[in-house]
């Protein structure tokens, strides 16, 4: 079987395969029992598949996936092949991989695990009837066969649902990662508001990952623009705790090492109270209540005065 089928599927080691089979109590005996049922399946295959797909297409949830005749035919032959493989009673690496592939296929066509599990239930109902009938009241052999079928089906469900979820998880993780990157990018705009003056408006919650990004971004911009003054505006920051204050101090120190001076603006009453209660020492940093005042200070220190035009 080509390797590409297994891309993104969970890798299952020999040890784990053995553990799973042991947990399910699926052993050699079951394999033999299944093998015994193999001719029975081949004999009843068409009748069974007709009934099975008739059932699936009579419910909207599964009908929406089995859109057309071609899809049904493909699913049907895949299903027949898989059942035959299962009834060989060999739960080796090949069977595990095949089962995972089935799960990946379900993911691909959008067949949710709730339908998969229920469909196997339908299968089981059918098998129970067929097996009980076949063994004509030989209870021991019937139970033995039923047990084996049960366990094999549970293994198949387990593996295909595993694969389905690992794919789903992968997709969600990719989405989360891209959104996180987007948020980081959006949240750290460094604005050169005047020659030699940068403004960094901080917005929302600041955590360690973001602070690191903010710091790097800011320092790079300081060097790029050769700015001597950096205004960190906290107007959009709702909560400041010790960690955030610590991060801010580190940013300020690093900027000063480059030769820039920092001004902290937008200190709201709440933030001022928190900082004092936390005992955070902002030391020698210039601070102000509003960005406006901070900007005035920055301009003045750059020797810039602003005034209305005469007339």
């Amino acid at each position: 079987m080509p390797d590409r089928f297994y891309q993104g599927a969970p890798a299952i080691s020999a040890q784990e395969r053995a553990d799973r089979l042991a947990f399910l109590m699926l052993g050699e005996d079951d394999g033999a029992a299944l093998k015994e049922l193999h001719p029975l399946f081949v004999e009843r295959r068409e009748a069974f598949l007709d009934a099975f797909y008739g059932h699936l297409t009579s419910f909207p949830g599964t009908r929406s996936v089995l859109k057309d005749r071609a899809t049904i035919e493909r699913a049907r032959s895949g299903q027949a092949m898989y059942m035959e493989r299962m009834l060989l009673g060999r739960f080796d690496e090949d069977f595990f991989n095949l089962s995972i592939q089935v799960g990946l296929k379900h993911y691909e066509i959008g067949l949710e695990p709730k339908w998969v599990v229920a469909a196997w239930g339908v299968y089981l109902t059918y098998w129970t009837q067929v097996i009980v009938e076949h063994f004509h009241g030989d209870v021991v052999r019937a139970v033995r066969g039923l047990h084996a079928v049960h366990k094999a089906i549970l293994l198949a469900v387990q593996l295909s649902v595993d694969a389905y979820y690992s794919k789903t998880l992968e997709r969600i993780q990719a989405i989360v990662a891209s959104q996180r990157a987007a948020i980081l990018e959006l949240s750290t705009p460094v604005i050169e508001i005047w020659q030699g003056i940068l403004v960094l408006p901080l917005i929302g919650t600041i955590d360690s990952a973001r602070t690191r990004q903010i710091m790097e971004n800011l320092l790079n911009r300081v060097v790029e623009t050769q700015s001597e003054i950096v205004i960190l505006d906290l107007t959009g920051v709702s909560v400041v705790d010790t960690a955030v204050a610590n991060h801010l101090m580190k940013t300020v120190e690093a900027a000063e090492l480059l030769g820039a001076r920092c001004i902290l603006t937008g200190i709201s009453p709440a933030i001022a109270q928190t900082l004092v209660h936390l005992g955070v020492d902002l030391g020698h940093i210039t601070t102000s209540a509003t960005l406006r005042i901070g900007l005035q200070q920055a301009l003045r220190s750059q020797g810039v005065t602003l005034g209305r035009l005469e007339g």
Partner: peptide
């Protein structure tokens, strides 16, 4: 001083 160096020193 390079930004990366400044970060290291402050850390």
């Amino acid at each position: 001083l390079q930004p990366a160096v400044a970060i290291t020193l402050s850390e």
